[in-house]
Design a binder for these strands. Sequence first.
DNA 1: ATGGCCTCGGTTCGAGGA
Length: 254
Amino acid sequence: MKIATWNVNSLKVRLPQVLQWLADNPIDVLCLQETKLTDDKFPAAALEAAGYQVAFTGQKTYNGVAIVSRHPITDVVKNNPQFADEQQRIVAATVEDIRIVCAYIPNGQSVDSDKYHYKLKWLDALRTWLEREHQAHPKLALLGDYNIAPEDADVYDPVAWEGQILCSDAERAAFDRLINLGLKDAFRMFPQEAKSFSWWDYRQLGFRLNKGLRIDHILLSEELASRCNGCIIDRAPRKWEQPSDHAPVIAMLE
DNA sequence: ATGGCCTCGGTTCGAGGA
């Protein structure tokens, strides 16, 4: 069982790449963020024709999330039932025996902005809801774009980014509180190359110079972590023409 | 020194992303 997450930065633009990537990779469950499509525009037929089931919730221009699965999807929940939010950032579903939560955590824009405070409130509400969700579903995975680089090792220039958005203490503390629910960062369960990132700025030759951040994560409950035998970031699609600025992250489960 | 790219909506520029 392989589960993955990929912020595609517009599914309208990136659908051919998603289909190509799925054709290249035996992924069972793929979580997408920033689909940027209203539900009536979601390319369900194209994905179903390729052999996948889908669950999604979206809006115009911004946000939007989806779960794409080779196996039947049940018990779909859209958004955090405990947090009224017009922004479509969460879709959860059960696939096989696993509770999949796909999340696009707010960016926050800049520390102390209104969007930053929204981000912290959103994260607090996520933690409260996930605690219950975890109790109900011991085999739980939280996949997505967290918009948080958990440690300095996840930042190409930690001095320049110190205290900045995606790296601030409050954001990292919120990430740690998710970990403290009993979840493990799948990527850090295994030896990894230094300077492993999942996002690179389109500007400044960010990818070629590996000026990136690791902000896309797969957190696994204990029951799933014990089944996990690998986690990688697939940089290949970031090298394609007209790429997303994010690369997919994959966790392998026995 | 600043901003340098990409997407969207909707018109050719501004907002947002990270």
